[in-house]
Design a protein around this nucleic acid. Structure first.
Lengths: 241, 241
DNA sequence: GAGACTTCATGCCTGCACAGATTGGCGTCA
DNA sequence: TGACGCCAATCTGTGCAGGCATGAAGTCTC
């Protein structure tokens, strides 16, 4: 029910917290949310419970609903990722996800070369060919979508559910990058070759080659955009064990 | 409020879904949950909303609350991870997380060597020394806790919030491994040296050495336990983009 | 087979009672 | 006089009960 009051309440509050309209430490009362959104208590309470499970807020008796600082937000929660990407200042989100990609995708390619079912191999080869075609003809929009599907497929072909689950945020990151103009005018010929190499190596069940080729792609990707967050400060929260 | 009815309802339902007592595709009615737990509608509804946000269930009008298959569960949700680790058959969870560690921790060590604040370096050196002491004297319990803190600290020192957020599930995985008897009788002398090398390289701000040393640790870790899941089938859900 | 109708579980609202944390007042003591 | 500790009032989330509205499934009619 994408248009339910519950959905809209979660979306509204989540967005306002993540983009900083409501600041960490601030305390909001359930009744004020009722008034602001014009909804009833039950809707507010259910929304707050969902936000609390994502680490955005905590609700305590006699005090209200306290907005938590970003360190407490679950950076893997799909909702949080979406709100961060939508909040404009996506520096931190982009950096975290890109560094995660650099770490994960070569491993995913390696595992895919060991375990991928045949259908996945065929589809990967297919996508690599289409990417080359779209890339050379300068059709950036379809190239982007093919690129997203390619990387999602490698992640899924690894047979690791956690890797597979990163496909959506990574896809949205790639779309965000293009919107920000962080993508090259047209794909480098090298990049096209590397994607082909990944598909070939996975199809040939050659883990080492698959990892190497994907590592080249990731290294290039990282170089292209690490300038964006060079100035963004890193956060070092002390681990709570 | 760890003892609220809401908390208990989420915990009860989540556990029963993840450990298979309630099977995917099954449909449960909100009223039946009320009866079973002896709670009111509001508690059930709030719990269902939280479970739905973790991908465990979906609730539809005129139908009820449908339990979703494991492919739909968010493998990064802390609740899901906890329930899976608790559900005994932790094969899949252990494999996913270990493969993720193998991918992420060397990268985390590299980033830590570039960005870690001085306090982190000191603490890392401190922990490495304590680990060697505990390891040689055969005190496995404290060695385990030191090991968990060491890896959590490296992840935090990377300055990547997603990496830092993996510390808790990884820690619980390590505890789970020991409970299953998957840890070596006493830590290898090599492993102790490698941890020291990681701490040294990060303190010396040498990214390449830090990555290499951590890679050795991870390679060994992976070898030690990959036999556990050799027979577990991998799942290859087609990506939904 | 297409469309209207019935059915029924969730969606949403409201009033009420309870529990527990904060706050401020009060009394005591140094 | 000022600081401390205790206790009660107060405020807000938690949980309960019941009601109507909504809309998807299934049924029936044509």
């Amino acid at each position: 029910m994408p248009n339910s009051l519950h959905h809209r309440a979660v979306e509204h509050l989540g967005n306002r917290i993540v983009n900083g309209t409501i600041r960490p430490g601030e305390i909001i009362l359930a009744s004020s949310i009722e008034d602001e959104l014009g909804v009833s208590r039950s809707v507010v309470r259910e929304a707050v419970r969902v936000l609390a499970s994502a680490g955005l807020v905590i609700s305590t008796k006699r005090v209200g609903i306290r907005v938590l600082p970003p360190e407490d937000w679950n950076p893997f929660d799909p909702l949080v990722i979406r709100w961060r990407l939508a909040s404009g200042g996506l520096g931190a989100q982009l950096r975290s996800l890109t560094e995660l990609r650099v770490a994960v995708e070569p491993m995913a390619a390696e595992l895919a070369a060991e375990h991928a079912p045949d259908e996945f191999c065929g589809e990967l080869l297919n996508l690599a060919a289409q990417m080359r075609h779209a890339g050379r003809s300068g059709d950036l929009a379809t190239f982007l979508e093919l690129d997203i599907r390619f990387h999602a497929l490698v992640l899924a072909a690894s047979g690791n559910e956690m890797f597979a689950n990163l496909a959506n945020p990574i896809g949205e990151t790639l779309r965000g990058r293009t919107e920000l103009g962080l993508m090259p005018e047209r794909p480098h010929e090298e990049a096209l070759a590397w994607h082909q190499a990944v598909a070939d190596a996975i199809s040939a069940h050659d883990p080492q080659d698959a990892r190497d080729a994907m590592e080249k792609i990731m290294r290039r990707t990282n170089e292209e955009i690490c300038g964006v967050w060079a100035d963004k400060p890193r956060l070092f929260p002390t681990p709570r064990i």
